[in-house]
Amino acid sequence: MSNVLIVAEHGAGAIRKATLHALAAGQEIARRTGGQVHAALLGKGLGPLAADLAAYGVEVHVADAPVLERPLAEAFAPVLADLAKAIGATHVGAAATAFGKDVLPRVAARLEAGMATEVLGFGGDGANVTFRRPMWAGNVLAEVEIATAVKVFTVRTTEFAPAQRAAAPGAVHAVAVSIDPAALRTRHAGFREVKSERPELTEARVVVAGGRGTKGDFAPIEALADALGAAVGASRAAVDAGWVPNDWQVGQTGKVVAPELYVAAGISGAIQHLAGMKGSKVIVAVNKDPDAPIFQFADYGLVADLFQALPALTAKVKAEK
């Protein structure tokens, strides 16, 4: 047996999109190893979610218990590790979300397994499947082998097309949960949804980012972003200056993004920043300085004052809609 176990995520009564990308990665491993893809669904009151997941043609293992209401790594890890053993999983994976990154290493520790984070693709066959992953914020790509019997991984969702519904749904199995709630030393004490009219930075199809050149005025950046339905990003210089929130920072020490289109306005292109966005499909740079390093990375460069160019582009976008 060389089964693949993909850990599903859900929220607001639906399977998260990220999970479909992880399932696709699982299917690719299964093709290479000759195994079957299974999915683990943990939570409380899961109702129809198991069938929703099984529709993708994978065997679904459902652990439905009050103690699993919140995705606490301390509670999820033993359930997932036991399940992985029970189904003879050689590969255990999830999407490289906050959830996946939080829980999967604990599962790996339980299984005495090595782990690869943020996997971009696979190579090789059978037991020798290799994992391609970024290091140094994507400045380096590494081909890694996991030397343990069980291999654990998370995948960057933008690198895998989502799984498709299958003609025949997979079977659904119930998993017994024996976690004692009183023994848990982690307690969930609240969740505040961060609502934004804009898409999440790491998931956005388009990102418009501003840097030092904005001189602290992000209005043209935000206007273009809203016209495009884009997320707003910023260089470290803009964040350090206190102009915009820290979680807007794109770069090695901020967020790594890979949208279809990245518009960098008033950003010179420090290594730190480039590391966080050079995986973008199309890069546009708008900068007054014709020698700014960003132009060496941009597919389209416009030497111009962003305070003139961006409003003009915003107007054009709105006019063409």
Binding site: G138, N139, A142, E143, V144, K278, F295, F297, D299, Y300
Partner: peptide, 22 residues
């Protein structure tokens, strides 16, 4: 437990074009 077999640099972005205006 994780053995790096080979490192490589991501494909270099080809030098872009400059556009004249918006």
């Amino acid at each position: 437990k994780v053995v790096v077999k080979r490192l490589s640099e991501p494909p270099a972005r080809k030098g872009g074009v400059k556009v004249a205006d918006v």
